[in-house]
């Protein structure tokens, strides 16, 4: 595909994405943040983001797919443990989870390819 066609596709993809943002505004103007409708939509969005995160860990794509499931789960567990132990610090959880997955990947010899 030519560079020009790639730029055209990026613009068109932006428009295709905007549609849902704009529809969201149209609906949002009819509800306020104390209504039941709001709490329902918030629950839907929360379930979606949680589902996406779980999917990224259990069915990864790219380089992460080369990491065994047990190591991915152990890393998430380390992150959750550090998060809980530090009075819910997201930063501590991220550092712990990433330390486990990076050291595990090194130990499995993925660096030497």
């Amino acid at each position: 595909m030519s560079d020009l066609a790639i730029y055209a596709m990026v613009l068109a993809a932006a428009a295709a994405t905007y549609v849902w943002r704009f529809l969201g505004i149209a609906v949002a103007n009819r509800i306020d943040d104390r209504s039941l409708g709001f709490r329902f939509v918030r629950a839907v969005a929360t379930a979606m983001v949680a589902g996406l995160a779980a999917r990224m860990v259990l069915f990864p794509t790219g380089g992460l797919a080369a990491i065994p499931l047990a190591l991915r789960l152990a890393a998430v567990g380390a992150g959750a443990g550090a998060y809980a132990a530090t009075g819910r610090s997201v930063t501590a959880g991220l550092i712990a989870a990433d330390a486990v997955i990076i050291m595990g990947a090194w130990w499995l010899g993925l660096g030497s390819g």
Binding site: T17, W20, R21, L23, G24, I25, V27, A28, I31, F38, V41, R42, V44, A45, M48, L52
Partner: peptide, 8 residues
């Protein structure tokens, strides 16, 4: 998925 995010 962006729509429920915007709505909420």
């Amino acid at each position: 998925r962006l729509m429920p995010m915007v709505v909420s």
